[in-house]
Design a protein around this nucleic acid. Structure first.
Length: 938
DNA sequence: AACTTCACG
DNA sequence: GACGTACGTGAAGTTC
């Protein structure tokens, strides 16, 4: 068919596909020879998805993937610095470039490139030709440089966001229509492509000017009329540079291509060629999928030479097929399965229960998997239907006796020669522990993923299965529903439950087979084995122990807060002249800024006024200008504080007291925080108030049992000490060695004030700077924190860098490392990936600061983890229990007579926790406190 | 479900 | 006056 009216041309920006694929996926290599193929794999998946998605009503009649060829184009001849600051292509991406062309051809899609021109120019040329022939064009890309082509039958499509980009979207981005986009780009320039533009003028200003003067030439001619001196000078002085910039950003619609639109007609994939290519690449899943789609057998998989590693995946991993799962209903079958586990030396295990709260959950069933595809489910606590009016439902038929099954499982689960593999093992560990079984030894795929991929993605099973097995597990929602009508797992029919539960064990085993050898390749085996995996039993025991909370104390506080809130609400209504919901920032903002006339209200992206504490605090200072508003803001601040304490703490904590134990059992996520820190949930016991006097009293409700004391030990300034060590700051190290006040020392160095003349205010500023450095300081941030002018804050920072030159070095080195490797590392080898480090725009700033902070925060997290892992053995002989961790603090419950001994032993464990792996050049110091409650101990 | 606010280190 | 900014979390409440 000749291209003409009614035809629809799709132009895919090939380079964009490749780079997106490269950055979205972890570095994947071909099993047989180690060839890097991650980007090719992603590229093929995207292409396949594109083909599948492009079918249907608005299907293209013609399509092509357009690539860049070489790096030298006619633009380099116009301007030698064009794209000069681009990083070199990553080592492992280069060999993949030709493969992406091959892939395109294998899919039987036209594949075009042209020396001396960019893909964008070819796209422009084809788009022009297609329009002239009366057809429509869709460009599959989100690149802003292509937006100038939009309009008149040409639109773009962002495949990532699944969103069309038409004239409106272009206008939203550039503030002008597509026909003026190049004018705006010429003025604004582009740091990524090294387009100079007009210094000091960005997209916003450029759009403003173009809209005022009509077009770029008119603007340049009449630049002298511009009132703002900076803009005027920038335009007048750089007119030539701006005209050059326009030439650089303008796409060439007349590239000398040697093919025609007719050559791009859609063709069906040649199934054999395509399967052959995919098989050569060893993309098993995609090969299988494509084969399935065309109802044909996939070619035999390429033989991979056997590795010595026990956990190398089987050569032919069978597909995940729930129909093949076994339901174990008798002792004989169970024994057979357990014998297989003994013979193999490992077994994947998963538990099903009635609740997500491990302390309340009853065991409903156990699933096992010994080899990919071979999984079984042992139903143990299923009941029939909904039960009768009296709530009693009967035990379902066809289940083994609960105790008999556990008696068979116990010796295997506790057998030192059989590895138990789980996903989020802490959960199953606790369930079994509450049934008298201490599971050991273990491996945990969630923690393996965390050790290897922290910062790249989550580590939940659904995400891992999707990403590494290309399989979407049966959602639990389909079994138990959601919301109000949700049922517990014991009510699920055993057949359905078998498919779901056995699949989880199957997936876990497959993930483990993939991850286990990879831990070595990613060089995080030690991290996994010494910092992640051993946390499971330690945390499980802490969580099961729980902390004693006096609900009566909390209840009394709640009542007192309720009264206070009611009083404040009356007062607030009176000042406002009308009652309103004080808890609604929206209503508060309208009253404060619209009705009461406070000026300077700033609306956020949702159009609501910001009413955060800092904003309200500013309003309270308006006593002279707007006394009513000042008073209102002050009362709202009081209300907010009390309301927070009541709802989040005194009310909520009471509901978390376990009826069986009378204690509060938090849950720590080991793989939650990117940096290696733990996170505490349900309830969060890592953010119990302490900074305000009023809030601190909540800690009085955290008490010790009779004859016991609460003991708290916390690292003093651990992050600053780590900073002093890693950044090699001699003055700071010396100060720590001498046990000096570190903030006072910093202040003295920075402001030339002798220590004996130090004032609290100067020390406070130095303290803020010390913390700022850990967070990846910026003038803006410090200025806001200290409420001083930005220039002054910048002055402080400059001076700090002068006095402690190691800091600057550390920051530059860390960011440089992150850019090169896409991750940063702690002293203990923990990797934190920083994929955003090469982002442009504001994301780059975030990524930089996060990269600077991560090794410090992460090392502190590593150290306290090491202390916690050693703690049970260290305090083993003492009547003491470790209960809580709050990032740099450990809380124990100890018999009164053993308090001093506990402090001695625990302190030594914490202070020596970095050794012997890391010998810090600063001492670690631990402060201790004790008392009847956490409030007294802290 | 997204956004805002605020509690902690 | 290109952009928007301290790092890392979780929970509760309101709004859509």
């Amino acid at each position: 068919m000749a291209f003409g009216k009614g035809c629809h041309l799709h132009l895919i920006d090939g380079s964009a596909f490749i780079f997106r694929a490269y950055h979205a996926l972890p570095p994947l290599t071909r099993k047989s020879d180690g060839l890097p193929v991650g980007a090719v794999a992603g590229f093929c998946n995207m292409l396949w998805k594109y083909i599948e998605d492009a079918k249907g009503a608005d299907a293209p009649t013609h399509a092509a993937v357009i690539f860049d060829k070489g790096s030298h184009t006619f633009r380099n001849d116009m301007y030698d610095k064009y794209k000069a600051n681009r990083d070199e292509m990553p080592q492992d991406l280069r060999p993949q470039m030709p493969l992406t062309r091959e892939a395109t051809k294998a899919f039987n899609i036209a594949c075009e490139e042209l020396a001396g021109y960019e893909a964008d120019d070819i796209i422009a040329t084809l788009a022009r030709q297609a329009r002239e022939a009366g057809g429509r064009v869709t460009i599959i890309s989100s690149d802003k440089d292509l937006m100038q082509l939009v309009g008149g039958g040409v639109e773009m499509f962002d495949a990532m966001k699944n969103r069309a980009i038409g004239v409106e979207e272009v206008e939203a981005k550039f503030g002008v229509g597509p026909d003026r986009v190049i004018d705006v780009q010429a003025l604004a320039g582009d740091s990524v492509d090294n387009i100079p533009g007009a210094p000091g003028i960005g997209v916003k200003t450029a759009a403003l000017l173009i809209n005022e003067y009509g077009d770029l030439e008119t603007l340049l001619e009449r630049a002298g009329e511009i009132k703002q001196p900076k803009r005027r000078e920038s335009l007048v002085e750089n007119a030539d540079q701006i005209r050059l910039s326009k030439q650089l950003v303008t796409l060439d619609p007349q590239t000398p291509i040697t093919f025609t639109l007719d050559d791009l007609e859609i063709r069906e994939p040649l199934v054999e060629t395509l399967l052959e290519f995919l098989n050569q690449m060893e993309f098993r899943t995609l090969t299988r999928r494509v084969a399935e789609k065309f109802n044909t057998e996939p070619p035999p998989a390429i033989e991979v030479t056997a590795s010595t590693d026990a956990a190398t995946p089987a050569k032919d991993v069978p597909p995940i097929t729930p129909e093949n799962y076994v339901c174990i209903r008798d002792a004989e079958t169970l024994t057979q399965w357990l014998d297989q586990a003994r013979a193999r030396g490992w077994v994947a295990v998963d538990t099903e229960t009635t609740s997500l709260d491990e302390m309340q959950a009853d065991l409903v069933g156990v699933s096992l998997c010994i080899e990919a595809g071979q999984a079984a489910y042992i139903p143990l606590g299923h009941s029939t239907g909904e039960g009768d009016l009296f709530g009693g439902s009967e035990r379902a038929e066809g289940q083994m006796d609960f105790d008999a099954a556990l008696a068979l499982l116990k010796p295997v689960l506790e057998d030192a020669s059989i590895l138990k593999i789980g996903q989020n093992m802490k959960y199953d560990f606790k369930i079994f522990a509450r049934n008298g079984i201490r599971v050991a030894p273990i491996d945990d795929t969630m923690l393996m993923s965390y050790a290897m991929f922290s910062g790249l993605h989550n580590h939940g099973m659904d995400a891992l299965s999707d990403r590494y097995l290309n399989h979407q597990p049966l959602p639990i929602k389909e079994l138990i529903g959601s919301g109000k009508s949700q049922i517990t797992f014991d009510k699920v029919a055993i057949d359905t439950a078998t498919r779901y539960a056995a699949e989880d064990a199957d997936i876990t085993l497959r993930l483990w087979q993939q991850f286990k050898p990879r831990l070595h390749r990613e060089q995080v085996t030690t991290v996994y084995e010494t910092l992640e995996r051993p946390m499971v039993p330690v945390l499980a025991d802490m969580e099961m122990a729980g902390v004693k909370v006096d609900a009566q104390v909390l209840s009394r506080m709640s009542n007192a807060f309720a009264q206070k809130l009611a009083g404040l609400e009356d007062e607030i209504a009176q000042i406002a002249g009308t009652p309103f919901n004080v808890g609604s920032p929206k209503q508060l903002g309208e009253i404060l800024f619209d009705q009461m006339g406070v000026e300077g209200g700033k609306k956020g992206k949702t159009g609501a006024y910001g009413t955060g504490a800092d904003v309200l605090e500013d309003v309270t200072t308006l006593e002279d200008v707007n006394p009513q508003a000042a008073k209102l803001a002050a009362r709202v601040l009081d209300w907010r504080q009390i309301s927070k304490l009541k709802s989040t703490y005194t009310d909520a904590l009471q509901t978390h007291v376990n009826p069986d134990t009378g204690r509060v059992h938090t849950s720590y996520s080991i793989a939650g925080a990117n940096t290696g820190r733990l996170a505490s949930t349900d309830p969060n016991l890592q953010n119990i108030p302490v900074r305000s006097e009023e809030g601190r009293r909540i800690r009085e409700a955290f008490v010790a049992g009779p004859g016991m004391k609460v003991v708290s030990l916390d690292y003093s300034q651990i992050e600053l000490r780590i900073l002093a060590h890693v950044a090699d700051l001699p003055e700071m190290k010396q100060a720590f060695k001498e046990g000096q006040d570190i903030h006072a020392m910093t202040a003295s160095e920075m402001f030339d004030v002798p220590l004996d003349q130090m004032t609290p205010d100067i020390r406070r500023q130095a303290k803020a700077i010390n913390f700022g450095v850990i967070y990846g300081i910026s003038g803006f941030g410090l200025a806001r924190n200290l409420r001083i002018p930005r220039a002054e804050a910048q002055g402080f920072i400059d001076r700090y860098f002068e006095r402690f030159p190691g800091i600057r070095q550390y920051m530059d080195d860390t960011v440089g490392f992150a850019k090169e490797h896409k991750f940063v590392q702690t002293l203990f080898g923990r990797k934190i990936h920083t994929p955003e480090i090469t982002a442009k725009g504001p994301a780059a700033g975030f990524a930089k600061r996060a990269a600077i902070n991560a090794p410090i925060q992460g090392a502190a997290a590593d150290i306290i983890r090491r202390a916690m892992i050693r703690m049970p053995a260290a305090i083993g002989g003492l009547p003491a229990t470790m209960l809580l961790q709050v990032h740099d603090e450990l809380i124990f419950e100890v018999e009164e007579g053993a308090v001093d001994d506990l402090i001695t032993v625990a302190r030594a464990t914490m202070e020596g926790a970095a050794e012997p792996v890391v010998k810090l050049s600063v001492p670690l110091v631990v402060d201790a406190g004790q008392g009847a409650s956490w409030a007294e101990a802290h």
